[in-house]
Design a protein around this nucleic acid. Sequence first.
RNA 1: GGGCGAAUAGCUCAGGGGUUCAGAGCGCCUGCCUUACAAGCAGGAAGUCGGGGGUUCGAAUCCCUCUUCGCCCACCA
Length: 901
Amino acid sequence: MTLPDLATKYDPSAIERAVYDRWIDAGVFAAAVDTGREPYVIVIPPPNVTSVLHMGHGLNNTIQDVFIRYRRMTGREALWLPGTDHAGIATQNVVERALAAEGLRRQDLGRERFVERVWAHVRETGDSIIDQLKALGSSCDWSRTRFTFDDAYSTAVRRVFVQLYEEGLVYRGHRVIHWCPRCLTALSDEEAEFRERDDHLYYIRYPFVGPKDQRSAGSANREGVVVATTRPETMFGDVCLVYHPDDDRFEGLRGTTVAIPLSAVPIPIEHSTAVEREFGTGMLKVTPAHDANDFDIAAALPGEFDTPVIMTDDARMADEPRVPKALRGLDRDDARERIVAELETVGLLVKVEPYRHAVRHCYRCHTVVEPRLSDQWFVKMRPLAEPALQAYRDGKLTFVPDRWGKVYEHWLTEIRDWNISRQLWWGHRIPAWYCEADECDHITVAMDEPDACGLCGESVRQDEDVLDTWFSSWLWPFATMGWPDETPDLARFYPGHTLVTGPDIIFFWVARMVMAGYHFLGERPFDTVYLNGIVRDPQHRAFSKSLGNGIDPLEVVDLYGADALRFTIVAGAGAGTDVIMDRGDMDATFAAGRNFANKLWNAGRLILSQLGDAPPPLDTLDPGAFTLADRWILSRCQRAVQEATLALERFRPNDAANIAYHFVWDELADWYLEQVKPRLYGSVDGGGGARAILVTVFETSLRLLHPVMPFITEELWGHLPGERGALLAGAEWPRPDDDLIDEAAEAEFALVQVVIGAVRAMRAEYRVPPSADVPAVVTIGSDTARRGVATEHDTIERLAKLSRLAVDEPTKGIGGHAVLSDGSAVFVALGDAIDVAQECARLRSEMERLERQVAGVAAKLANEQFVARAPKDVVEREREKESSWREQRETLAAKLHALGC
RNA sequence: GGGCGAAUAGCUCAGGGGUUCAGAGCGCCUGCCUUACAAGCAGGAAGUCGGGGGUUCGAAUCCCUCUUCGCCCACCA
């Protein structure tokens, strides 16, 4: 039998595409609605439709694929539902940048043409992310690919908006929201990220106006009161100053009037318990239109309050009477600079302190967010949050690792209403229509455009805004299955099972999907949330375009193969732990995966070359004819099956990968294959049994590795002899069975491994040429010894027998020893290849040293005072030393004896 | 301000309510192109498990504390 026609080096690029096509042609990824199998469902976190695959996708999707392939093999009707997200703000930004390169703004095109343009872009790029997922080996059911902007999906979005509106859970609110002056849209709390920033705290004097007798109180300066602020440019929007009612420093100042510096607008001083007395001067300026807290403070004041907006939507000083003429039109940063300079000039700037604080930034463009008073649509979250919270507390929803559950719980407990309207053009247009009649403020919310105002019959115009992208994403687990229609898919595949995603979108997406699932279908969308980590560079920085530290997963696929990438990712990533990859040393980063693929490939070549036509099935052979090594490898294989299965059930794909790796490499390749070679090559009997066992064990290995390394395992599977029929991707996962464990064989073989290890160590130590067969004496425990040949291949069985043989006369030779797990020692003496006299001398001097040590410690322990007074652990340690050294002395003595010194 | 996570061999990481636990991969050293694989084989060196304290017969592992990194949440402007 010759080696099959397989390259000596595994070349992934030669097979991956063909293998993937075989899966697609066979339809193994397609989930059926009409089988009796229990479903297992994962919905993909839909990547942005315009995105290019990055390593985060690689990590996330590989793990999903491992889970879905495993379940598919265990006989579940596995559905991995793929798709993409229209990603409102992100996609709009991409297209706007492209326009900018042409010197255009979206306003130049107008809404309709702009949206057309985005659609064109989406059509152009939409498939590329899908193709890239395929290159990773993702076993999605592509026939069910969805897009969050599909017509059917849009219907679901509108339906949800309308229903929530009718339930009073969607409402229109007038309040201070986060506004991105670059994207020109409102953002939700989650989209406005805190970032540390070095700023200044400006102490500004607001001079008194009015009768002089009001101008004294506490520590307030007669010239006015001093306020500390980080945002002097907002002061023209101030409506009052407030201090804490219990703050005696300002006693009596309430009701006094001060002037806003530079504009001389008079504002009153009021009380508010919201003031933190220790901060700044204890006096706070209240700018209700440009600070959410100030809005609340003002709202709590008696009477009506003004809410002057003094900035434009792109954060310039507004053309408003309150704003000094010279400042109007200035950008907020320039305005700040000018204002501070002016204040200095007029003597109202008391001092400036450096100040580091967290400022909200747009999560898309990282511009500092401007708090801004405006009208927006909100979702009332509290009622939605309750079932989602309860599900976690009742254990119906589990997080892996569990700590993220606490994060989820905390957010839901503190949840605030969700601003869902965005001032964008790309997205689901809000299905709300306003009456155009002046005196009518009726709002019609409906699935379809109404002909006229539902109240007065006048014509209507639709809300200009679109919905937050996440307002469509949160419906993903069921809108993708046809909801609100009662489709077969929905009936069969909802609720789903596992969600695999990053912890960064627990709030954005995970929690909201749970809320939507319970609210609209009365069921959780999944039972387990597996959080993968983040891919980082060796400095532990997240991969980013600007740092240029990222690794393109497709480049890795090209260089090392998808399986090598997948193995590296899976083996290197426990749940919630980050994966470190080094752009600067790709070889080192992916070596383990690449090397292992090659090892598996070559083990496959050897095995396949020996199988011939299908060997007889294992159960037709006489187990009595199995050798120790046979029984051992069968048992170890079953051990690997059990452990890998358990690991996958516990959502520990990294453990499963490593278990299979070590079984294949350390046990199957390093020991069993070496051991059976003489049988295979005919120098020893038993080749038939060996082949039957090889095929069984190898086939099982391929199954175990398939979820992690689908391409190479599928390819090798295809070369197995006999009619194995279907693809490995659709084959059965090995069944764990305790009865297949042979503990006696494992123990005995472990002994053999130790003995052989000792022989090899000595051969290396004494430079015995690999080609030389050297007579050896093996001594186990106090038993001894028999002549054997301490070389490879046929040694195992022989040594196994030796280990049970009776004493024979010691032979001259050189040796070493090893300690077995049961504590007994093994001596191995090699034959005449070495200078015995020299070795004897070395051993004797070692013996002398040991004698001295034993005598020393024995004397110490004979000292009663030491034993009585010294700390117990010290005494114990001395005792341990003594017995250890005595043991070593025994060992050495036996060795000397064996050598005949 | 609150919370979470991490610190183990040169690098990246497993382990973790007590025996078998000081491990893996990569790197390094020595010897081998042995007819599956040099992306390999055999052998080997290397860590007082971040510091300190505590509980215990016994702690990398449990408790306290400190230090250093990272992350999340948060209405002291």
